[in-house]
Design a protein around this nucleic acid. Sequence first.
DNA 1: AATATTTTGCAACAAAGTTGCATTGTTGTA
DNA 2: TACAACAATGCAACTTTGTTGCAAAATATT
Lengths: 139, 139
Amino acid sequence: MQDKITAILRKHQLSITEARKKILSLFWETGNALAHGDIEQKSSEDFDRVTIYRTLQTFVEKGIIHTIPTSDNSVRYALCKDECAAGHHHDDHVHFICDDCGTTYCIDEVSVPKVKLPKGFSAIQTDLVISGTCNKCEQ
Amino acid sequence: MQDKITAILRKHQLSITEARKKILSLFWETGNALAHGDIEQKSSEDFDRVTIYRTLQTFVEKGIIHTIPTSDNSVRYALCKDECAAGHHHDDHVHFICDDCGTTYCIDEVSVPKVKLPKGFSAIQTDLVISGTCNKCEQ
DNA sequence: AATATTTTGCAACAAAGTTGCATTGTTGTA
DNA sequence: TACAACAATGCAACTTTGTTGCAAAATATT
Ligand SMILES: [Mn+2]
Ligand SMILES: [Mn+2]
Ligand SMILES: [Zn+2]
Ligand SMILES: [Zn+2]
């Protein structure tokens, strides 16, 4: 597990630091997407807030994590699959945010459908975000 | 135009105030979606920041405007069509955010495709947000 | 092990968002 | 039109979130 994490950092040519290992392992352990605030709560005793901002930014740039847009001004981040690289994300799956528990899921098995845009518009990224009730909160 | 605006407010049983008329007319004039910050810039001399927060919240609750999720922690708001009402939005069109000029469009002519979710997940709202280059910024 | 490079923490700051309460504005009724 | 009831606004004070520069610490390279 620690090996896996250092391997990811090495692969993306990032120096291996405590903060990066810890934040990466948080994503790995929870399995779901995390907001900046979530990470801060789970590691505020270990690291400064600023380090978290900078680490998340680095991870996005390197293609280690991707962003998930939200309507509550709290972007979520989730681990990318192997195909993602610096400057080129390939996370074309659907995202789900539970209104009950707030958990944000990468629904890897459902891919984002292609849509045809009006003349003059060209797409670089498409995000499909669904909110509702997740399988754990289903009554 | 002023008539149209007061009619909307009346229809949703909101008292008619300067702030609400001004903010609604901003949406009407620009035609595109606006972030809180945009509205603040265009009306900061007329109204307090707090009033803008409260007005946007009221408009969303009443079904006058809808939110558009983003990955930059700055939710956009846009006018709803007539079918939206308090507690029930029906804005199932695609949204487009231009990476160049930042303009956010409601693409009314393209509707959000239905997707089948894994067992246990039930959707309440689906947002499809595309970013890229808009028809005005196309080289 | 010594040096070069990168990352981190801290401090100071700026921007964004929230809340309570007195004042002002709006609405419906007399 | 005047009045009372109610709702919206402005202001102040505050909290939370995000940014920046720089010295110290950690990591990588030789
Ligand atoms: Mn994802
Ligand atoms: Mn829209
Ligand atoms: Zn849930
Ligand atoms: Zn544009």
